[in-house]
Each structure stands twice: as structure tokens, then as C-alpha cells.
Design a protein around this nucleic acid. Structure first.
Length: 316
DNA sequence: CGTTTTTGACCGGCGC
DNA sequence: GCGCCGGTCAAAAACG
């Protein structure tokens, strides 16, 4: 009964977990100005502040905004006359009130670089010590954070279906917001991807989903058909990420929102962001409510292929 | 009956 | 050193 749908991914925002920004391997970072000052705020205020998206609405279905967009055209297109509620947001990475195209912010955390290597190891370890993180005093090493990305989505549902199964493991009240923040973890045993979901204080209709880490497995939903075992060798592959991927399950009994399917999973950190952007753009395109009423909005005819293996694109 | 959600407690990091 | 805060755990409850 409730399962609302209508989700629009407004934007993406990745923020480096902490002050690791220093590492700029990601061109993205340069774009997002989550500079240290911002970073501070982020910590204090929370993502929401950063994301303070005013009304990024516009397009009918969903539009994705990669903050990473280095696409000048996009930036140019989106002018943000809207006064930032906070000022935290970087001028270039905001949304556009005028053009119903993209809007959003994003940045990528840099941990990937440093942690990447570690991460791999970490995963293994994690499996072993899955539940003894608190009790035993961790030797000394502070837990390392994985790359995080935040997506701003306009949706009525808090938990967006992204192709993966998530188990909620916590919920906390957000300081500057009346809305709580929910913490989810990928149910796959060997996968330690986490994500947190919170609603924007400014715009209750906007949900901010922050992904942390990358999936070590393909989307359970997707795997049903081809993924079978042909690919997935690369943990960093798009699918590997916790990016939101909307797929229409064959037997959608869960909450599936609109028939749109987006396979965005672009943030391969050390990869070309260009592709990412492309994929996002592509997304947008896909999502556009075309005249043809078909559940197959997906069909990637585009750059997606660059990023996703043919299996991922899945054909229906 | 197995899985997921709820929720209060706990822990570590950080600022004062 | 203390308190605040974000994030996580884990037992119990709720669900399917």
C-alpha cells in the first residue's frame, strides 16, 4: 500500500569522509568544492546542508546529477540563482532552478586512492570479524572509511530500490533535521557496503542516499539473468559499486518504483569520470518519459555500455 | 521459521 | 577530561 514511487535522482554528492580531501586523484574533487571549510560544515551540519537542494525538480522521472560533472556544458547550463540556504554548497556544484535538467552536487571521496588497497584487505578481514568490531578493542588502526557518494533523490520513499538488498541496522536522529537517518548494510555476507538514507530538511521530498564502499558482487537482481558468472571479475566495475541501480525485477514483489531502470554505477574512482558523466546523462535520457509506454525504459543505448558490461545492461 | 526492522545502549572521535 | 555526536551493535519484535 505504501510503496510510493516516483523517484528522481537529483544529484550525487560524494564527500570525502573526512579530511582526506588532500588526495586529489579525483578530478571530481576539484569540481566540488567541498573544501576543507566545507568539510567542516559537513561534519557539523551533515550532508543535508551540503545538499541543500532547493527545488531540483523538474523532469518527469528521474534525473541524475553527477556532481562530478566536469562537463562544462552542464555547468554552464545550470545557473543557480537560487540563494543557497546555507552557503556551504559550492557555487558550481549546485542545482539549477531554471533548467529542469540536472541539479546537484557531488564529490567523490578520495579514500579510494589510499584505501583502495587497504580496502580489499579490509573486506576479507571484515568478513572474519564481522561482529566483533565493538567489543574487542581494535588494535589501533582507526577504521578506515571507504569512498562515499551521496545521491539526492526526489522521492517519497526513503529507501530506494537500487538493485541490491539492504538490511537496516540503525537509525539516528539527525541533528539539524526533524528527519531521522537510517543506516543500511548490504545483506550479502561478503559485501560490506553501507548506505545511509536521510531526508532533506529543506525539502522533505528529497532523499539523500549516501553509499559507502563498493559491492563485491553483482546486483542480486541483475544476476538473475546473464551475470551468471560471465563477468564480475572486477570489483571496481560499475556494478560493483553501491551506486543506485534501478532494475525492474522479474517478480517485483518488493517495492519497485517506476519502471525506469537506471544503471548508474559509474563512480569508478580511479576511472574516467567522463564516462560517469556520460552515464548519468544517459540516465537522464533513459528516464525521460518517452511516448512509448514500455517498461523497458532501460535499454542502454549509450555510454552506459562503456561502463557496464553487456551483461549488466541486461536485456530485459 | 528465517529474515528484516526497531530501538536503546555502547563506542570512538572530536571539539571545547 | 568531559560532553557531544555520529555510527554500530544486538536483543527483541515484527513480517512474510
Amino acid at each position: 500500500m505504501e510503496r510510493k514511487e516516483g523517484i528522481k535522482i537529483e544529484g550525487v554528492l560524494g564527500n570525502s569522509s573526512y579530511s582526506e580531501y588532500t588526495a586529489n586523484n579525483f578530478p571530481l574533487q576539484s569540481m566540488f568544492d567541498l573544501s576543507s571549510s566545507e568539510d567542516e560544515k559537513i561534519r557539523s551540519l551533515g550532508f543535508m546542508d551540503l545538499l541543500s537542494v532547493q527545488d531540483l525538480i523538474g523532469p518527469p522521472f528521474l534525473e541524475i546529477m553527477m556532481a562530478a560533472q566536469q562537463v562544462p556544458s552542464l555547468n554552464a547550463t545550470q545557473v543557480s540563482p537560487t540563494p543557497p540556504s546555507k552557503k556551504i554548497e559550492s557555487p558550481e556544484v549546485i542545482n539549477q532552478p531554471a533548467t529542469p535538467n540536472f541539479s546537484s552536487i557531488s564529490s567523490v571521496s578520495s579514500e579510494a586512492l589510499n584505501d583502495e588497497a587497504v580496502k580489499v584487505d579490509d573486506q576479507e578481514e571484515n568478513q572474519q570479524k564481522t561482529k566483533k568490531q565493538l567489543k574487542p578493542k581494535k588494535t589501533n588502526q582507526k577504521r578506515q572509511r571507504e569512498p562515499r557518494f551521496a545521491f539526492m533523490t526526489k522521492s517519497e520513499v526513503d529507501h530506494l530500490e537500487d538493485g541490491y538488498r539492504w538490511r537496516k541496522y540503525g537509525q539516528k536522529a539527525v541533528k539539524n533535521s526533524p528527519f531521522p537517518r537510517s543506516y543500511y548494510r548490504c545483506t550479502t555476507s561478503s559485501c560490506n557496503v553501507k548506505k545511509r538514507v536521510e531526508r532533506s530538511f529543506s525539502d522533505p521530498s528529497i532523499v539523500v542516499t549516501t553509499y559507502e564502499g563498493q559491492h563485491t558482487h553483482p546486483s542480486p537482481i541483475m544476476s538473475r539473468s546473464s551475470l551468471g558468472g560471465s563477468h564480475l571479475g572486477s570489483p571496481l566495475s560499475a556494478a560493483a559499486f553501491g551506486m543506485p541501480m534501478q532494475i525492474t525485477p522479474p517478480n517485483s514483489q518488493h517495492q519497485h518504483q517506476q519502471p525506469f531502470t537506471n544503471s548508474l554505477s559509474p563512480f569508478n574512482f580511479g576511472h574516467d569520470i567522463g564516462s560517469i558523466n556520460a552515464s548519468f546523462l544517459h540516465e537522464k535520457r533513459i528516464c525521460t518519459p518517452g511516448p512509448g509506454p514500455g517498461p523497458s525504459l532501460i535499454k542502454d543505448h549509450g555510454l552506459l555500455q562503456d561502463i557496464l558490461p553487456s551483461h549488466m545492461l541486461k536485456e530485459e
